[in-house]
Amino acid sequence: MKQLPLPMHLPARDGFDALVVGRNDHAVAHLRGLVPGAGVAAPVYLWGDAGSGKTRLLRALAEQHQAQGERIGWFDAGTALPWTLDEGWSLVVVDRCEALDAAHQQAAFALFVEAGTQGVQWAAGGRLPPVDLPVRDDLRTRLGWGHVFALQPLAEGETRAALRREADRRGILLPDEVLAHLLTHHDRDMAHLMAVLDRLDGFSLAEKRHITVPLLKKMMAENIHDLVPNPPPAP
């Protein structure tokens, strides 16, 4: 009988200090400056392909506010309606703007206006630049009038560094050959790679074995449907 590990691994760190910045240093520097008490800055919009780090950076911004005792509101295309601004928030985040349907676009627009009236910092993200978002014109205009940053995915060396940093944080040994296999046989999407690393950490505990390429292959063979992020549609 296989032993299942208890969920005792460390939660993921969301702060800026845990980031491998890569070519996104200007965006990170700007977000770091959006601290409570410094006054409300112009809205921020981050855009880039899947895996470029939009959500990760928005979470770091939220963590920065929460670390100072502030409360934030987080919404995305899947957040149930209605959307209501809490007077105690210092930051409102809207993620996955490219996927907002008509009702959520209306909610986002109303939230944007109310946040501006109440002096609440606004930040948002999506896969497309504001001009190309399939949203109503008034919302598109507001998402684009502040600071807009196009995010770049990490280069291979930076991706290696990010995975190594997370492995070190977990206290696990991640051999070079395992890193090479991950980068050769998996999507470079950092969210996917981190999910694979998280699963591999637990799988190695369950198997009572060190992390190796054969162990990774065994895990993939046993969990292939869980680890493929976007399986092809059924015919």
Rank of each mutant, 00 (worst) to 15 (best):
I172V: 12
E63N: 08
A195G: 09
T159Q: 03
L4P: 03
I224T: 04
Q68I: 12
D95E: 10
V131K: 01
P134W: 11
T212H: 10
L61P: 10
P153W: 12
G53M: 13
P11Y: 07
D226S: 10
H185D: 04
Q106E: 12
F75W: 15
D76W: 05
T184C: 10
F112H: 07
W145D: 06
H30Q: 11
T212Q: 15
L193D: 08
L183T: 03
T117V: 07
G22Q: 01
Q66W: 05
A108I: 10
P129D: 10
A42C: 11
A161M: 08
V28G: 07
E114P: 07
L151S: 05
L128R: 09
A41R: 11
D101A: 01
D176W: 08
P134N: 07
D14Q: 05
H225M: 14
G15V: 06
A221I: 04
K208L: 06
A221H: 03
L173P: 13
D132P: 02
V20E: 09
G88W: 01
G37H: 15
A161Q: 12
A18D: 05
V131H: 07
L81K: 00
P82R: 00
T212W: 15
E177I: 01
C97Q: 02
A18C: 04
E63H: 01
Q106R: 10
H30F: 06
G202P: 00
G146P: 09
M219P: 02
N24T: 07
P129Q: 04
A110T: 15
L193N: 06
K218D: 13
R96I: 01
G53L: 06
A67Q: 14
P153S: 06
G22P: 00
P233Y: 07
L200G: 00
V44M: 13
A42F: 09
K208D: 12
P7Y: 04
V135K: 11
G125H: 02
P134K: 11
I72Y: 01
H186V: 13
L216W: 07
T55C: 11
G125F: 05
P214N: 11
A27R: 11
G48L: 05
A42K: 09
